[in-house]
Design a protein around this nucleic acid. Sequence first.
DNA 1: CGGTAAGTTGACGTGCGTCAAGTCTCGTGG
DNA 2: CCACGAGACTTGACGCACGTCAACTTACCG
Lengths: 239, 239
Amino acid sequence: MIERHLLKLRLRDTISAEEDAAIRGTIVDTIVHPAGRTIVRAGEELNYSTLLLDGLLGRYKDLKNGQRQITHVHVAGDFADLHGFTLKRLDHSLLAITPCTIARASHARLRQITETLPHLTRVMWYSTNVDAAIHREWEVSLGRRSAIQRAAHLFCELHVRLQVVGLAEVDSYPLAISQAELAECLGLTPVHVNRVLRELRERVLVEFRNGRVSFHDLPGLKRLAEFDPGYLYLEPQAL
Amino acid sequence: MIERHLLKLRLRDTISAEEDAAIRGTIVDTIVHPAGRTIVRAGEELNYSTLLLDGLLGRYKDLKNGQRQITHVHVAGDFADLHGFTLKRLDHSLLAITPCTIARASHARLRQITETLPHLTRVMWYSTNVDAAIHREWEVSLGRRSAIQRAAHLFCELHVRLQVVGLAEVDSYPLAISQAELAECLGLTPVHVNRVLRELRERVLVEFRNGRVSFHDLPGLKRLAEFDPGYLYLEPQAL
DNA sequence: CGGTAAGTTGACGTGCGTCAAGTCTCGTGG
DNA sequence: CCACGAGACTTGACGCACGTCAACTTACCG
């Protein structure tokens, strides 16, 4: 299932057979985690990075009062903490939002790639830089967009990202996340998320129910969210 | 003045004479920008990255209604858009908050580094990953912290980051930023920033005036902000 | 069929936004 | 030297988007 990751990389640039093999060669094992489990806790020393093969995974940070902020949602094919390769410990935790199948990539082998495969190294670097671009867009949402715009923007972003790995239809996609977890992404309370979802439904823009996002007016939704996928850097580019 | 950048890298890991020379060798020219100027506009094709030698520089994104969100503040010694090396165009703009001296690092020469100097490549990768960690912490502020906590947290963060490059005293540092720009960092209005600054002053925690941040009770401020500098990854680590 | 977690709704509270009217600072030119 | 204007800062009155609290419904699972 590592194909989903390669699919995404190949959208950006050519990945040679040798590079393909090198990426696969970093994987030391594959694990399935149940929904709700914290896979990696903030601060732990790491000697592997987590490649998400299947499921939904969140990066989050805790606050003293028990609140959490989810700072990123990963979909199948994402390297959830490739940045951990250079950082050696994470400033955030990793949560399995749905049941997650993950592959663990050895840092020692990733290091080998940086010693011998400069092009692939640039591709991996690129991929952590796109993650950072997504963080920036979330900052804009959290800082400046209204609750309804934030929700609309997130639904648009995940639609594009899931389409890339073949997990979304043109007008809908599966998203097995609770309203409480959505609230933790959007910097809102679960109660208000519920109200916002109702408004999106009543305005016939999107519907979110039974773990599925269904678009009724995608152009209208994108207009509401001011969604521009440029920050996802999906266009081809020789690195 | 590129020393400030090297100073910061050397806090994390050893930089050899050859690597030192390679970094200096990427610089093609040095430019001074007046305060208020947008140095790089979102979307432009780039063939160089911006190393900030002196001044304060912000990354920001515009919204349709004219509002802006500043997603990151750079201090002297920061590579403001090293991520542009792999992304080739920026999803955000760069603003000179104060007059800024910048050096431009050629992407072609950075590429040479990735071909020949794997350790230095990892160090540069690391430095973009720390930027991403700062983005995450800002997401937590914007999503979950109150206005006064956000301001307190930012003052704490900049204190640490400026100390690293020798630009902060133990109990104060220069910060030539307007309240309106602070508001754009914190996801607030200028009016509310003003009220929050007053409260911080009245509670004898920090004072911000005449372009200087002066701490009156730094431990109390850190407690209020729940500030933990771990996300800045300042401890040494062989990469 | 009972227990538990997720979702829904209404009434009410509040932190921050909005609007508007100041004051203060400083650079410029008469 | 002072007049003036512009931009930054300050403050108060008021409004609203979202939070809080609490009761209820629904879905799911053993």
